[in-house]
Write a protein that binds this DNA or RNA. Structure first.
Lengths: 203, 203
DNA sequence: GACAATATCTTGACGGTGTCAAGATTTGGA
DNA sequence: TCCAAATCTTGACACCGTCAAGATATTGTC
């Protein structure tokens, strides 16, 4: 469709999608504006009509990552609307899965690749929305006596941080083989989460 | 000393130190082999006599970071050899402080900048040694009934992961202002750690 | 001490990068 | 219809990592 017009039609999105693919295939180090442009079939500086600089494209890709993360989180959690314990379990695992299945996207979202997050409102908003979903689950767990009483947002940072830390260390190869030889990532994650859970443990 | 010889004398270390300074001043994005070389007073490809490539220099800088982290951790923990609870408290806070005072070093150590960690034995060893120190503290806490019984390495991953996750999110600006308006990073960290601690809370 | 092997460092080149300026082309609104 | 704005191309610039060739210093051996 619209194969060879001078104007692309939807270049901005095409660039984002091309960027996502290159990121997945070649990693953060392999992501260049020029490759993205070539993949989208335009000249090397066409992207500047839609993004003021490379950071801005990275922000857009990261934002897309957050939307996907939110969607997967929500999809994992929604089926258990009246079972907070399972919501916590499913949501946590969805987060870990997302990180492990989209290593490089996870990286640009969370690893300082984007230098001035605050400058990108869409990024901030999509990340805020994701956090809100976590807070929802935490609050439900508190109401059901699955998590201890505490300011929900504070507890949410704790839970999210726990997941985020473990999966980050795992992706970095920083988890000792002494541990990895004996436990799966799933076991490590749930072992950690269970420290926070009151009553019956997760699995 | 030895100001203008053709041979530098200790270029390898000079390059690492120059790299550390540039990293601290200009961030990961500003770290280039050529700048490092210039700062050390040598030509742009002199580094190749000591490092096969840029990744290798990054590995050396990261290794230095781990040594510093280990030193600070050890210094914080050692004074309380017979008070495991305070060891945990002091060690945890030292970790967080290191991350916040050396943002960019922390970044290259843990954020996927180094792509094949396994290829750098010194890096792996210095990171392993740091983890061992954490395990020591965790074991002492278990013996004293401060942390629950469990495989010490597994619990150590949990504790380390918790700290690492929270401080990583904080550095990325991912912690909601709703939380930051009400709690300091120290409060967030200890609130999280206290979920793991049996008996009297930390502070 | 002489000399060869080796380690260290310089110079120069290559392709790839982000970014900018100038100009071409297309689109949309007055 | 016509012009302003949006979009895209071409060409240039400085910077980057890396490599090859050669200069210079150090070290080990006789």
């Amino acid at each position: 469709m619209a194969s060879k017009k001078y104007h692309h039609g939807d270049l901005k999105n095409a660039l984002i999608q091309a960027g996502i693919k290159i990121l997945a295939k070649e990693g953060v180090g392999g992501l260049s504006l020029r490759k993205v442009a070539k993949k989208a079939g335009v000249s090397h500086s066409a992207p500047y009509a839609h993004f003021p600089d490379k950071q801005s494209l990275i922000a857009a890709i990261s934002t897309e990552g957050f939307k996907q993360l939110y969607a997967e989180l929500d999809a994992a959690v929604s089926p258990y609307a009246n079972d907070p314990r399972r919501q916590l379990e499913a949501g946590a695992w969805a987060y870990v899965q997302f990180a492990m299945n989209n290593t490089d996207t996870f990286n640009i979202m969370f690893s300082g690749v984007l230098e001035k997050e605050k400058d990108y409102p869409a990024f901030v908003e999509s990340s805020r929305k994701t956090f809100e979903r976590v807070v929802d689950v935490v609050r439900a767990c508190q109401d059901a006596g699955v998590l201890r009483p505490a300011p929900a947002e504070l507890l949410a940072v704790s839970v999210w941080g726990q997941l985020h830390g473990i999966v980050s260390l795992a992706l970095e190869g920083q988890i000792s083989h002494v541990v990895l030889d004996r436990f799966s990532v799933r076991e490590i994650v749930f072992s950690a989460l269970n420290q926070m859970v009151l009553g019956n443990p997760l699995s």
